[in-house]
Design a protein around this nucleic acid. Structure first.
Lengths: 150, 150
DNA sequence: TCGAATAGGTTGCATTTTGCAACTTATTGG
DNA sequence: CCAATAAGTTGCAAAATGCAACCTATTCGA
């Protein structure tokens, strides 16, 4: 198993997991495609209609997400359609999507502005996500640091 | 208090917190600037050297991050330098950065490839972050859904 | 005190990415 | 077998990004 970006292109910062993730899904559309896949979208047309993305760009992004092991492409029972499904790695982005969503809820809306919310099976809003230290208390950026590998 | 994107530009999906967050920090560089700010970078030159970003683009991104209330710009004691610091909203992106980092650690490296890691004050690696349901068990994308606002 | 170095830009131009609209191919339902 | 649907592809225009040279204000050192 190995992970690659694209022929002829290099990682922005090869040793940093944040930078690699941004290289893979940090453009204007990929994360929104993933968001809609998590919300049930599976076909080219569905993604196109929900996002209003240019068709050639959608083609390119779906292809790259498949290449990177985030989406899986298969033929649907209707021979015209293709089915795009999140792989395990794609589903594992749920945590990151929730973290970005919760930040947006807290900081990207005026107090009175309405916005969609994420709820569980019982319709209850999700609790806020925060990194915890070993002792179970919330951990801040200042209380942590990056250890660079040799 | 109100939140705006930029003169003459519109939100990709105004009601979705994920989309708004992507509109604010979802380009090739902003999140890496924030990552380095969390790791102690404060000056134009520091960001430039760590990232290898084009100077005019760095100027633009720092200005936008300040505009969006994620960074704060002030004069340093050395009259030549400026100091960029994360605001509260900027520090609050820590959760999202950790989530993206942990996904990258799990899925963007070959098993034997070295990468930097995030540790706490005692040098211990951070526990994995996962959304939990009200009952405290991990919640998956399938067990949740978006409720659209009127 | 004055010239060189540092810090933080700006400007012009080339390259790359993105977006739009029209066209293409394959499948399907009536 | 014809019209509609699905999933693209293609050509061209517009916008974003990147590079290198230039500019201005501080500060340091001889």
């Amino acid at each position: 198993m190995d992970v690659t970006l694209a022929a002829g292109s290099a990682w922005t910062d090869p040793a940093c997991p944040v930078a690699r993730t941004v290289d893979l899904i940090g453009d204007r559309w990929s994360l929104l495609i993933i968001r809609d896949a998590m919300d049930g979208a599976t076909s080219f047309t569905e993604f196109h209609q929900r996002l209003g993305i240019a068709r050639n760009i959608l083609t390119d992004r779906l292809r790259k997400l498949v290449e990177h092991g985030i989406l899986d492409k298969s033929a649907a029972t209707d021979g015209r359609r293709h089915t795009y499904r999140l792989t395990g790695a794609g589903q594992d982005l749920f945590t990151a999507v929730v973290a970005l969503r919760q930040w947006g809820e807290r900081h990207a809306f005026a107090p009175d502005e309405p916005h969609s919310i994420l709820v569980d099976d019982q319709g209850r809003e999700l609790p806020e996500l925060h990194p915890l230290g070993q002792d179970g208390t919330p951990l801040s950026a200042e209380a942590s640091h990056v250890r660079r590998t040799a």
